[in-house]
Amino acid sequence: MEGATFSRSAMIAITVMRVLVGWHFMYEGIAKLTSSSWSAAGYLRQARGPAAGFFRWLAAQPNLLAYADQITMWGLTIVGALLILGLFTRLSALAGIGFLVLFYAANPPFVGYFYSLPSEGSYLIVNKQLVELGALLVIMVTGSGKYAGLDRIVHALITRKPAPAVVSPAR
C-alpha cells in the first residue's frame, strides 16, 4: 500500500470492519472455550477436498488433536480481542488469515462437494470464510490499528525517539 492514500472515512470504515471481524473471531473462540465438549474432531472428520486426508489424520491423533483444539480456541479468542482493540493489528490479521485458510481448506465449497450438515447459504468456491479472509487482508495491509486502535498509542510511544518503528513483526 505504499503510496496509496486513504481518506478519513475510508479509515473509519476499515476500522468498523476490523471491529466486526474481531467480534466474530472472539465469539467463535469464547463459545468453544465455554462449551464443555467442543473439539475440532467432528469438523476435521468431515473434511472434504484435496487436504481432507491430512485433516482426518489429524482428527485421529488424540495428542495432536488436543493441541489443535487449544490453539484454535485460544487463538480465535486472542486474535478477536486484538482485532477489536487494534493492537498488533497486522500480526493478528495474519494469524486470522491463517485460521481461515485452514477452515476453508478443510471444507472448501468446490463443485460437487456436499456436506452432511445442511449449510445456511449457497456457496460456490467463495464462502463466508473466504470473504472474511478478504476483509482481513484489507485490515492487514492498511494496518488499521494505527489509525484507530491501541497500535496508535504503542506506535507513538515507541517512535518518540528516532528509531525505526517496528511495531508489527508481520513482515
Binding site: G3, V141, R152
Partner: peptide, 15 residues
C-alpha cells in the same frame, strides 16, 4: 512501516 506518510496528508501526523 508502510502507509504512515501517506496518511499524514489527511490525518494528523502519527509517525
Amino acid at each position: 512501516m508502510a502507509g504512515e506518510e501517506d496518511k499524514n496528508k489527511v490525518m494528523p501526523p502519527i509517525a
